[in-house]
């Protein structure tokens, strides 16, 4: 009697072992699948049709090469030297009307930052670095990356910021100033866009979870 039970036990164990293996061709995890099947994308889909109409320039930072939107065409009052023909010191006259009165600097306190921190007084069309090197306004990210180096690293890789359009190569990412106003970069508090009144009703009736 005992022998029969033992036989059945071993048979069940054998069947369980045989049936517990995963199907052929299926991976145990997504990372295994990615490692096995990865291939640079050379398919039919491309972001080029989605990007028509936007002016883009190609940049290479470190190991990354991608497109960013051109900036000079987006600034209404570019070129700055059309008004700022004289050097900075000459404009400090109290008689002249204060231009750019509506730009409030809410970026860092006055110990750290004023207009001359970023704007190049010798060439009002450009910006300047901490060591007084000229930075082209199209490449304004170089200026931001001086203080915000971790966000810059994330942006280069793709973890920070948004794409101009689509996930397909060629990659076109937005720059810092496309989302952040450089004079007041933080996002304001706001109200949520959506409120689900039906959920509210259901929760009141005790039907929600």
């Amino acid at each position: 009697m005992k022998d029969k039970h033992l036989k059945y036990f071993f048979l069940t164990m054998l069947l369980m072992v045989l049936f517990s293996c995963k199907k052929e061709g299926e991976y145990h995890s997504v990372t295994d699948k990615i490692k096995a099947e990865q291939k640079p994308y050379h398919g039919k889909l491309t972001s080029e049709d989605l990007l028509t109409g936007t002016d883009l320039i190609k940049i290479t930072e470190g190991e990354f090469t991608f497109l960013i939107p051109e900036r000079k065409g987006q600034i209404k009052s570019y070129e700055c030297i059309e008004c700022h023909s004289k050097p900075f010191e000459k404009k400090k006259n109290a008689n002249l009307k204060k231009a750019h009165w509506n730009i409030a600097l809410k970026h860092a306190n006055s110990d750290i930052m004023n207009c001359a921190t970023c704007h190049n007084e010798n060439d009002m069309n450009s910006l300047k670095s901490l060591t007084n090197q000229k930075i082209d306004i199209n490449l304004s990210y170089k200026l931001c990356s001086q203080c915000h180096s971790s966000q810059f690293n994330d942006w280069k890789g793709g973890a920070h910021g948004k794409k101009v359009a689509g996930w397909t190569p060629p990659r076109a990412s937005k720059t810092c100033v496309n989302c952040h106003n450089p004079h007041s970069p933080s996002f304001e508090k706001r109200w949520p866009v959506q409120f689900n009144t039906q959920k509210g009703i259901e929760r009141n009736d005790g039907l929600g979870h």
């Binding site: 997504v30 990615i34 099947e37 990865q38 291939k39 640079p40 994308y41 890789g157 793709g158 973890a159 794409k163 996930w167 397909t168 190569p169 990659r171 990412s173």
Partner: peptide, 15 residues
């Protein structure tokens, strides 16, 4: 962030 996991140069893979 959205992208193609099989493309080693995609932003999602970098993340």
């Amino acid at each position: 962030i959205f992208g193609n996991l099989l493309d080693p140069s995609s932003t999602i893979r970098w993340v």
